[in-house]
Design a protein around this nucleic acid. Structure first.
Lengths: 336, 336
DNA sequence: ACACATATTCTCATATTGAGCATAAGAGAG
DNA sequence: CTCTCTTATGCTCAATATGAGAATATGTGT
């Protein structure tokens, strides 16, 4: 038996950019793994404990190698460490601990390196995009399937608990939709078996993979909502989206995704893309302008139809004045 | 050479309770380590990759063993992984990755197990307590030392950068104090050498421990602000306090620290203890009552001086109605 | 000149927040 | 029993923030 490390630290990056009003992430192809070959995955790689000085540096190296992209703003998301999170552990592989990061970049054309590509966020989590109203997939697929799951609860109390959980997660039964609860929603869909990963990872008799509180067999394994990813990468993506939506409120991170100057409409569309909501245009403008987040440059954009818009830039001073300034997403709008 | 793991996953817990209007954490004594013997440390222990099913379970086991305390609400904080974070790495120890958790409990008397004890949070971070106004140590020790550090910057631009950083961290030069920036503040004090750990860990000629952006020798090694802890445990504590202060705003976590029924004053004092601020009593009451966070029980508290206060309980329904409800700490008050 | 499209400015009703006054209800001193 | 002290609770008022939308400005293309 050769000496192999008992533990492997995996580093994963959710690399986000917004282009054409779509939030995108950088994905790579991944041919191995006992599941379906050639799944999409997050750029990732193991830490070399002897060489890598910091986790961020190691991550940046893997991303550079796999996608050619250089990371700027990077933030740690979460560390996942459940046993058998990576099915290779069952085959004698090391215990995998995976540290997920969120990175924000301005989308750059990929130099065709490897199989890296930009993918729309909502291909993976289609129920998160409310920009055109309540998403079809929620109404049509998720709600009925959840209702079946609720009803299948064992006893009155269990049904009530399940209903409360479903209502809170998906904004039903009078509960308002909460854009930041992305991970909770994915987790529920996973447990219920509504996403492909839930079915794939379920204990087909093995018995130990049931890591959730209740070991549920997937009940609606016919549904495959959203595009799946390798391992738990879609779960990581859900964490990232939730975190980013929350962060928008109280930190001016949005400017990491924008060019140096931009129109207020581009700023708004970028926020909307991430928030998955429409905002009231006039009020949004008031918020960012009076909030001191941006300042006009005096220059105008080349006309694209109507009256030309002024170009703005991020007001760096806001970090001194209101260190907790964000673009604040108070309410949602139906129309444009 | 015996087989030793190349990586060790350390699990640390910042276990918080509030008693007598003081936020406390559970600390243990720790006799080893190449530094000062018998330092205070967070309850912690390594993950057993072959046995522990989840990170939380492993953590709970170590905490139980070292303190006898059973964890309830647990939340992951951050994963630290810089090389040589643990100085034993230099002596051939495994690469240490440390995952920090925040746990909230109701303070229970310790059954004398081991050397566990409750310690006031602000013994370690005295500049964070503004309940009696701007803390003395900030005015008297930190501000002047930081000013010296700022002036020592190499060149005009460096001085300006340093000043901005110091101002933002510590609410000087017109910048308002931000209670959540706890970790940034500790980090700055560490780099500048104003806390004992900064001096202890500094590269005394070795040259590789300088992990910050600038490899600063500690400049004010005479000062020892606050009580130090083992390794980077005080940094972890700072992360925990910052996170908890932030979380109070948008999640009703405060009730994890309170008994089932409580007066509004106790609730307020508990929030104040964590926030390190005084709040306006009438407005606080309005906030939590109208916000639907609590409901009266009709019972009164045994008199402790003035008019008896009504006992309230947490309104669990708020989780359905406003899933993002917190106690909101809008502004600070000078008086009581 | 005219329709069209988008940008920008204002207005207005309604919450929310910050601050402080006023009143209520107990305990203890005289 | 009354006065004073103490804490609880209720209420007012101004300032500010938010949600919604009307009105006006300034381009492009016909």
């Amino acid at each position: 038996m050769t000496a192999r490390p008992a533990i492997e630290i995996g580093l994963n990056a959710v690399i986000v950019a917004v282009t054409d009003e779509e939030p995108r992430l950088l994905a790579v192809h991944r041919g191995d793994g006992p599941g379906a070959a050639n799944e999409l995955a997050l750029p990732s790689g193991p830490l070399d404990p002897a060489k890598d000085r910091t986790l961020e540096l190691a991550l940046g190296g893997w991303v550079r190698e796999q996608t050619g992209v250089e990371l700027g703003y990077v933030e740690q998301l979460y560390t996942f460490g459940n046993r058998f999170r990576d099915p290779r552990e069952r085959l004698g592989g090391p215990r995998g601990i995976s540290i997920a990061y969120l990175a924000l970049v301005r989308e750059a054309p990929l130099d065709g390196a490897a199989g890296a590509s930009w993918r729309s966020w909502y291909d993976f989590l289609p129920w998160e995009d409310w920009r055109d109203g309540r998403p079809w997939v929620l109404e049509r697929e998720i709600a009925p399937a959840l209702e079946r799951w609720v009803r299948r609860g064992a006893g009155r109390a269990a049904v009530a608990l399940r209903r409360e959980r479903a209502d809170i997660c998906f904004g039903q039964g009078g509960v308002p939709w909460n854009g930041e609860r992305v991970h909770d929603r994915f987790e529920l869909l996973y447990e219920v078996g509504l996403v492909a990963e839930g079915y794939r990872d379920a204990p087909h008799g093995t018995g130990d993979a049931a890591q959730g509180a209740e070991a549920l067999p997937p009940v609606d394994s016919g549904l495959r909502l959203g595009r799946p990813m390798a391992l738990d990468h879609r779960r990581i993506l859900a964490s990232a989206l939730g975190r980013l939506r929350g962060k928008l409120r109280y930190r001016p991170v949005i400017f990491e995704l924008l060019p140096g100057t931009f129109t207020l409409l581009l700023l708004q569309r970028t926020v909307e893309a991430l928030a998955g909501l429409r905002l009231h245009k006039q009020n949004f403008r008031r918020l960012v302008e009076q909030g001191g987040l941006v300042e006009g440059t005096g220059r105008l954009e080349a006309g694209t139809g109507g009256r030309p818009a002024e170009l703005f830039r991020f007001r760096r001073d806001v970090l001194r004045e209101r260190p907790a300034a964000g673009v604040g997403l108070p309410g949602l709008r139906s129309g444009g």
